[in-house]
């Protein structure tokens, strides 16, 4: 009897969870299928009255948006690969080696993770102009790396601590150097953790807005979140709701695919070592 009630509670909870998480997604998808007239003043119905693909075709025809998509993918992937590579080295050292200043490194990573990004954009704009990095891919890759490294380092350190290091020692006993032991034995074992860190890092870079609007000015490097402000509607003074929604759906699809494929890994990554001392 009691058991059944608890189960019912869980069931209701699960239903609410699904509604809460998916309703806005359904909403934005629904908007993306509405004809422009239905998104004008005084049309508050949830689902489209008539369905249309027009919004998607106008997004597809928008060259600037396509450039932004390429920018976002390119910059996020480069930043992810570089960041995870550096983080892997760093996390290995932290999880495995004894050295002075380990606490300092962890504190720096934590401090960066907490850093208010807006504090930087003024000086960074000047610096990037001087170095010729303004409105270029590297100009975004570098800050994305800085801000995703802490996340990647924390996640990877947690993963690395689970690895049976005896195997590495065994390899060293067999005559391998620290570096060989790392490369031959540990890298394959660490790959799943690295992969998880990569997904989380990619999400961060994909999501960024502040750097995107401050450090770019043309479609050379402008990423998708910043490009969304450039859609022109039926009048020039308001965003075109349905076109924007179609663009939003398109940039959400990669997220959904990644989540569908890798949900187990992402959950593991987000929860790994979060509470274990």
């Amino acid at each position: 009897m009691k058991r059944a009630r608890v189960n019912a509670g869980i069931l209701i909870g699960a239903a609410l969870l699904l509604i809460w998480c998916l309703l806005p997604i359904v909403w934005i998808a629904s908007l993306s299928f509405k004809p422009v007239e239905e998104t004008a003043t005084g049309s508050p119905q949830f689902l489209p009255k008539t369905w249309t693909w027009d919004n998607f075709s106008s997004v597809f025809q928008n060259d600037d948006f396509q450039r932004a998509l390429i920018n976002s993918f390119g910059i996020s992937i480069i930043a992810t690969v570089l960041s995870v590579a550096l983080a892997t080295l760093c996390a290995y050292a932290i999880a495995r080696l004894q050295f002075r200043g380990k606490r300092l490194v962890l504190t720096i990573a934590l401090a960066i993770a907490m850093f208010p990004v807006v504090s930087l954009i003024g000086p960074l704009f000047d610096l990037w102009r001087t170095l010729g990095l303004f409105d270029t891919w590297p100009g975004l890759v570098i800050p994305y790396m800085s801000f995703t490294l802490p996340l990647a380092i924390w996640t990877l350190t947690a993963f690395f601590r689970e690895i049976p290091w005896e195997m590495e020692q065994a390899a060293q006993v067999d005559g391998a150097t620290s570096w060989q032991a790392f490369r031959k034995v540990i890298v394959p074992l660490a790959a799943p953790g690295v992969f998880t860190a990569a997904i989380l890092t990619f999400f961060f870079a994909w999501n960024d807005f502040v750097f995107g609007i401050s450090l770019t000015s043309t479609t050379n490097a402008r990423p998708v979140p910043a490009q969304l402000a450039f859609f022109v509607g039926p009048d020039q003074f308001n965003p075109p709701v349905s076109t924007l929604a179609a663009a939003a759906v398109m940039v959400t699809i990669p997220v959904i695919i990644i989540v569908l494929l890798f949900q187990r890994k992402i959950v593991a990554g987000l929860t790994a070592g979060a509470v274990k001392g």
Binding site: L18, L22, P24, P225, A248, T252, V255, V259, I266
Partner: peptide, 30 residues
Amino acid sequence: IRTSILIPYGIITVVSAFAWQFAFSLNNGF
């Protein structure tokens, strides 16, 4: 359940802001 809960986590904040802005909109929100 895991997939559903990860979608808001992975979605772009700006997209979330637009979705909710339109939802609360006087003119075309539900």
